[in-house]
Design a protein around this nucleic acid. Sequence first.
DNA 1: GAAGCGTGGGA
DNA 2: TTCCCAAGCTT
Length: 355
Amino acid sequence: MSDLLSTFAQRIVDWQVSHGRHHLPWQNTTDPYRIWLSEIMLQQTQVSTVLDYYERFLTRFPTVQDLAAAHQDEVMPYWAGLGYYARARNLHRCAQTIQQHHDGQFPTDSRVLVTLPGIGPSTAAAIAAFSVGERAAIMDGNVKRVFCRYFGVYGPTHLRATEKQLWHLAHQALEQAPAKLNMRAYTQGQMDLGAQICTRGQPDCQRCPLQQGCYALAHQAQGELPTPKPRTQQAERSCHMLIWQQGNQILVEQRPDQGIWGGMLSLPQFETEADLAQFLTHHGTSLQQAQKMAELTHVFSHFKLHITPWLVHKPMAFYEPKPDERWLASEQLATAALPAPVSKLLAALAFDFTP
DNA sequence: GAAGCGTGGGA
DNA sequence: TTCCCAAGCTT
């Protein structure tokens, strides 16, 4: 066991150097700002999804100073469609914290990094390892899968007990590894292994550097490790969204930071048809003047939302938007901080916005 | 400490 | 189609 543990990290390093990924946009840099941005975007998000967002964001905000100087409303559009929008709000807060309390110098010590908003233990370790080669352990979805299979760890990985075991093994693997371990290759290698070899569906054990000593391979338990999370009943909700069109503009409102789509712009939303009707009545029209559109369903990670859009194109004079409301012109749609389903809904209507 | 928090892709 | 979950963190 101790022999299999002591060679674990170095085998991953050797494999990474020859067979891992080396040309992702956030590799081949030691700039903690760029590394940090990639790590935040990659939280619960696949590489292919992040690529375009990463380039666009860096073009607009090349340094942590540029990001800190911006208003949150300038940042959110660059996150629109990527999901988990608290990441963008925390990213912005973090940049301002670094500007104010760290003299504008991006920290590279994991113990400091983990105190910053949006940076947890795994992200802190990844930034420190990639930027200055700190000997810090990461623990993401890839690493959990590799460790569960190699060491034969059973139990849903989100449970505290399982998580604790995994972190312990991760620290052990580092302690027993050679003093000169290449931390960048080790950190990247764990992710590459999980993403390319030790995949969820059909792991490519023939090409795996961890064949020798792998519990799952020896017991043919790849299919049952990691232990899948017990699935629960998907909750469902429904709402009504108002598409109030004036000329080539649409009324949108900024959502509160708490809750779904926090800090993003969205359509005025109502729980019931009666609430929508009341709103319309108070604004000089009625539900009868609105055109009911086909329902669409949006699936979140923890519930399913049935959306009934209502289109109103009757011009309503005298309407003064509330502080959290804005008129959005059709040409602003593409660059507005709209969540994915709202963006798609409005884009589908774009042909109606003939000037 | 369990629940909340997006979206898209693959099996 | 349906289900799972991906470079997790916050409250």
